[in-house]
């Protein structure tokens, strides 16, 4: 039923090339930051993975609502796949932030509003994946996970806004900064170019992984339908 798709192959290869290019941009093209030094280069991947996490959860929200409205299975496949990718990228975001914070804030972790809300978001979507795994009946599972996907999304804008509404030590590089923030810096033109490039690379990578993952999900559901038929005959 699912043959290999030339367009998907093209996307896979191009995201591979883009990643190599973005590594060059981040490690060589971008200038060294004066105060923080080389560690600042983590920033590009940190922001990109955070952006992909938010995008992935937004896709989960939209497809969950669309599933409840249209009852089309395909939307459910996209929702679960996107949530899974979102959890991976949130993990990358948290780990890279932690590695950066060790030299700059002199601690791996602090209960700052931004870090707290990001942790809550991460836990929420892990719970979403648990819920998906814990429900056996497919039809019922789709409705229930769709509702939880909507409920969980409330944490995403909260995480995004956390560094903008509360007093926090997390830097706001894009937009106005809090005077309390530590590790603040101004971006040069080359830095902006590098950031935009890595964000676009990650976006392409996200859609490539999503496509692969949705195919796996459809195959999986097809397989369990066949299994169901086999036992009922």
């Amino acid at each position: 039923m699912l043959r290999s798709n030339p367009r998907l192959k093209l996307m896979t290869v191009s995201s591979l090339i883009l990643i190599v290019l973005s590594m060059y941009m981040v490690l060589i093209y971008a200038p060294r930051e004066v105060i923080m030094g080389e560690i600042q280069r983590i920033f590009y991947y940190h922001v990109s993975s955070g952006w992909i996490a938010a995008l992935a959860f937004l896709v989960t929200l939209i497809t969950s609502i669309m599933f409840l409205a249209t009852q089309n299975e395909r939307h459910d496949h996209i929702a679960i796949s996107s949530a899974e990718i979102g959890v991976i990228f949130t993990t990358m975001n948290i780990v890279s932030g932690s590695v950066w914070a060790r030299p700059v804030w002199n601690t791996w972790w602090t209960w700052d509003p931004r870090l707290t809300t990001a942790t809550i978001m991460w836990l929420l979507y892990i719970a979403y994946l648990f819920l998906h795994a814990g429900l056996e009946d497919h039809d019922r599972r789709r409705h229930i996970t769709a509702v939880y996907g909507i409920v969980a999304f409330i944490s995403v804008p909260l995480t995004f806004m956390a560094i903008r509404i509360w007093r926090t030590i997390h830097p706001v590089v894009i937009g106005s900064a809090d005077p309390d923030a530590e590790g603040q810096f101004d971006m040069t033109a080359r830095m902006t170019t590098t950031l935009l490039f890595t964000v676009s690379t990650f976006t392409v990578l996200y859609f490539t992984i999503l496509w692969h993952r949705v195919r796996i999900q459809s195959l999986f559901e097809y397989m369990s339908k066949l299994q169901h038929q086999m036992y009922n005959d």
């Binding site: 809550i120 836990l123 929420l124 719970a127 648990f130 819920l131 814990g134 429900l135 056996e136 009946d137 019922r140 229930i144 509702v147 939880y148 409920v151 969980a152 409330i154 944490s155 909260l158």
Partner: peptide, 26 residues
Amino acid sequence: LLTSIAIRTQVREIMLPILLFPVSMP
């Protein structure tokens, strides 16, 4: 709301806190 979800799963007593704690954290 989440209990009505958790009772549908097989490990419902454990599932409720897993679902509820992160949502209610704020």
